[in-house]
């Protein structure tokens, strides 16, 4: 069954015709060309496909695109204000060496955003829990945890 749906992604409306069984991940990557969101496992176990829907982090690989109509979707491409001004989370990931191969990065950043929106001053165990659904093989998570700490500080200062 094909549906003509309008998705609000990073503030912009996109109208796509999509089959009801297509996942949000497929529509973002294949129809909208927003390939910053990755697909690492397709089972909701690795977190590489994490996006925010109405402010909550979800696995885009286990979300039906049709179910997202009328919701606010934020992907990694919507994090930075412009090409020149990055989001504090992105700045911190770069600054702290939290990025190696980069394949988990988008999902990690979205999980970090989910956390910091709800808990602006997280403890280390809270950060670990917040990213425990995001797997990374390169970093051992240390510098990612450090980056999220640092981003939290910057975001508080900015407010």
């Amino acid at each position: 069954m094909k549906h003509l749906i309008t998705l609000k992604v990073n503030g912009d409306d996109y109208t796509v015709a999509c089959d009801s069984s297509r996942t949000l991940n497929e529509v973002l990557r294949e129809d909208l060309g927003l390939t910053g969101t990755k697909l690492g496992c397709g089972d909701g176990d690795c977190g590489a496909c994490t996006v925010l829907i109405d402010g909550d982090s979800v696995s885009s690989c286990l979300t039906l695109a049709v179910s997202c109509e009328g919701k606010e979707i934020t992907t990694v491409e919507g994090l930075a204000k412009s090409g020149e001004e990055l989001h504090p989370i992105q700045e911190a990931f770069i600054e702290k060496g939290a990025i190696q191969c980069g394949f988990c990065t988008a999902g990690m950043e979205m999980s970090a955003l989910n956390l910091l929106k709800k808990n602006p001053s997280p403890t280390e165990p809270e950060i670990r829990t917040a990213i425990s659904g995001n797997l990374c093989r390169c970093t051992g998570y240390y510098k990612i945890i450090e980056a999220i700490h640092s981003a939290a500080e910057t975001m508080k200062e900015k407010q």
Binding site: G44, D56, A130, G133
Partner: peptide, 9 residues
């Protein structure tokens, strides 16, 4: 149960 993203869904 599971991880943050799954619990959000």
């Amino acid at each position: 149960t599971a991880n943050v993203q799954i619990r959000n869904m």
